[in-house]
Design a protein around this nucleic acid. Structure first.
Lengths: 194, 194
DNA sequence: GTTTTTTTTTGCCAAATGGCAAATAATTTC
DNA sequence: GAAATTATTTGCCATTTGGCAAAAAAAAAC
């Protein structure tokens, strides 16, 4: 189990740069397994993030409370991606977001200290991290941008394409706020699609 | 003129890391002034980007054609920011976006070659660029994300707040597609606000 | 396996936005 | 500066989405 998870992490990293066996072993020695049950939080608003997670299995969501006090799901993070409030993590400032498991999750955790050591030890580590960061952010921008000009039904169907099994297992409110519509509207959209 | 522009670039970079005088002089020697007239393109879809621009004065927009063939303005880039299709630039693949001056612009250009030399010569350059990249992308995500749950009038007013003088000087179509609404809807929103 | 609580659906109507075409207004061309 | 072109506004009506509350369904607690 743990073994496969570590390999998934290493394979993910190898997409972005080369690593020799010694470096791979170092990374594996620093990564710790964390199992989260559905609904448990990986990180919370108000706290300075002290670790990043590589999702081996499961799905997380990132959410926050807007100025009207409504809980908004900002995005979902699928397995084989990193989860962290990158802004707060880099700047070492309290996060304004919650990161929550919406299914049972198996994560690999790298602490700030571990990341610092990897950065100091592995030539090219910073470059790998930098590429991963910008790739993830570019994907978010490219996902969000067209959503603005699509109608809610289209946005819902694209969510279904990306997370086919998820729609009926998570609270309607998570999905509605992500899509930018009310719960009742989403409920009607669902009815019309069937 | 040029002098002040260079200082603006250097001051911008210094927000993200230290540079000594020699490094500053090197950067200044590599940056070339480019003046764009309103409506001219800085880069075009289909071409591999070969340079980045620091906007000294003026405003650019990034746009693309969606699957319906509609031209969508993805975002506006204000002065004292970098403009580039970061994804295509990094991956050296053809861009899917146009970057166009929507006012007369004064830009400082860094070519791929110049950037490579800066990267090889200046310790910490890559880190500065990496920080700038992720900051810009995070800002875009944080801008786009709440727009989904706002109504069009609110989105328009936020645009007015950010670019107070621009709204009546650019084609309605640029703004409407950015806001995710039709031209006629935007026209009516304008009328109602007055 | 009831009871309680939470979530989702539905009805009703209002408000927002879209689609299309015609009318104005503004800009460009000659 | 008149004509032609382009951009914006407006009218009309359809569709989408919101707001609120009640009903129904599902999930949780006992």
């Amino acid at each position: 189990m743990t073994f496969i998870a570590m390999d998934n992490l290493i394979n993910y990293l190898l997409q972005f740069g080369q690593l020799n066996q010694q470096q791979i072993d170092l990374i594996k020695s620093k990564a710790k397994v964390l199992e989260l049950k559905k609904d448990e939080y990986f990180s919370e608003a108000g706290k300075i993030p002290k670790r990043v997670a590589f999702i081996d299995t499961g799905i997380l969501r990132v959410c926050y409370y807007n100025s009207k006090g409504e809980e908004i799901t900002k995005y979902f993070i699928d397995k084989h991606n990193f989860a962290v409030d990158i802004n707060s993590f880099n700047q070492k400032i309290p996060s304004s977001e919650y990161v929550q498991a919406i299914t049972d999750c198996s994560l690999l955790i790298l602490s700030t200290d571990a990341l610092t050591e990897l950065s100091l030890t592995i030539i090219g580590w910073d470059n790998i991290i930098s590429q991963i960061t910008s790739k993830a952010l570019i994907e978010k921008v490219n996902k969000l941008s067209p959503m603005l000009s699509e109608d809610a039904t289209t946005r819902y169907q694209e969510f279904l394409d990306k997370f086919p099994t998820l729609a009926n297992r998570i609270p309607l409110s998570y999905l509605a706020s992500y899509l930018g519509i009310t719960q009742s509207s989403l409920s009607r959209i669902r009815k019309n699609i069937r």
